[in-house]
Amino acid sequence: MESKYSEISKNIQEEAKKLLSQGKVERIIGFGRGVFTGEITPIFVTEPERAEELLFTPECDMMLAKYLLDYKGSKTGIVAKPCDTRAITVYLAEELIKREDIFIIGINDCEGLEENDACEECGVRNPVVVDLEIGQPREEEIEVEIADELEDMSPEERFEYFQKEFSRCIRCYACREACFVCACDECFVDSNQPQWVGSSIGKRDNFTFHLMRAMHMAGRCINCGACEIACPEGINMRALTKHLYRAARDVFQFEPGLNPEEKTLFATYRLDDSEQGFLD
């Protein structure tokens, strides 16, 4: 097992070194390891000599796609898990980044990450868009189901569950910042004219924040689990968004981040769309 990841890391380093020294990219966004922490941290490699700092292990659970938005207009390479490529696909579909600005080093045959429960609900094991593949693609299809603990709850039970879960929120916005979908120029939380949501950690404000955020996720969230991993308070962040993922899939046969040519759910309108509500 270990050798598989050191093999992947070695390949990434070699390819990164080539790309950087040939001037094909200006930088590569990837994973490295902290000097003191020994933990995985996103790094930005600009010199070929530093390519050996790049690595890949099952601990690499951060989503890197969002950093691409910091480097619009300059050729940037990115080490991408299949979920990262789905995020990139959503960005391409929403025209937030240009395909020619990025170079995707995609990792094939992803077996999921150690700490991320969302991986158990992910059937995408190979990159969706890719410029250079690392490892052999996994050919067989994977059957997964997305658990939805809300499904069998009555509205009252759901409400009680949310209240309890989100009462722990300290409004640090780690979920929002870790989420690639949360890339608005100005988040509704940061608007003071008008103020949509109060800054207290009271039940009402916390609930408003998470519900409003979730509503922006429908048809865009890929259930990558970044929000949940980022949450320092251990809140079941995906309780809301998973429900919406399933709704988008079951009602509109739409799963975001699989096809860059396809417009996102909220960007399309068809006369024969079902009128079923998301909150039913």
Partner: peptide, 13 residues
């Protein structure tokens, strides 16, 4: 600060 997400975790903890 290149990889900083801009959340408030460091300050709130």
């Amino acid at each position: 600060a290149a990889n900083c997400l801009g959340c408030g975790v460091c300050t709130y903890y």
